[in-house]
Amino acid sequence: MNKVVKNAEEAVKGVKNGMTLMFGGFGLCGIPENSLKALAASGIKDLICISNNAGVDDFGLGVLLRDRQIKKMIASYVGENKEFERQFLSGELEVELNPQGTLAERIRAGGAGIPAFYVPAGYGTEVAEGKEVREFNGKMHLLEKALTADFAFVKAKYGDYAGNLIYNNTANNFNNMMATAGKITVAEVEELVPTGELDPNQIHTPGIFVQRIFQGTDYEKRIEFETVR
């Protein structure tokens, strides 16, 4: 089983205007930097992007936003991006904000073949608008639907030719679920190793979920708020 592609340009082949894409990462931690750059360079537009955050103005998803490649964002927290705020308030960008745990579970459910599920988050708020409400154990819940994507872009510390992935520290975040929810999942890794070199006990994402994998280059790994003692 060899899923290795040469580089980011090859990895994003087949992404078309109007597709739904997922991007792993929390803030700028664990984002697929190489795939994002290749997509920005491709000029593909009208994208529906599912990501917890929307990058910052000049990095990550912020670059696709700036170049008006995104039609709709499905996210949970977008506080660090002025261009996002401007496009949203002016109505140029469609935005669906989800409670973070609901977003994570919608993606997990999408990958796991569960079409919908009930959660208490958002009951009695504007998130509940238009959603079925049902009581379980004396508590009100909302029916939330699963999310899948045409392409899911994830980033891991280690990966092998078969697509097995290991994340580093808090750079796992949304990557692990998103890897399961893409029709085509593209993984970029800091260190690509031959199959058999990763300890099977340590794998976070089994290779079955990954269709393409490549060795990333020039990782910037930008820190949003460097805070020291």
Binding site: A75, S76, Y77, V78, A121, V127
Partner: peptide, 13 residues
Amino acid sequence: LVKGMGGAMDLVA
């Protein structure tokens, strides 16, 4: 300001 609820709705619920 548009920021989003992040994990706050899940936490309070």
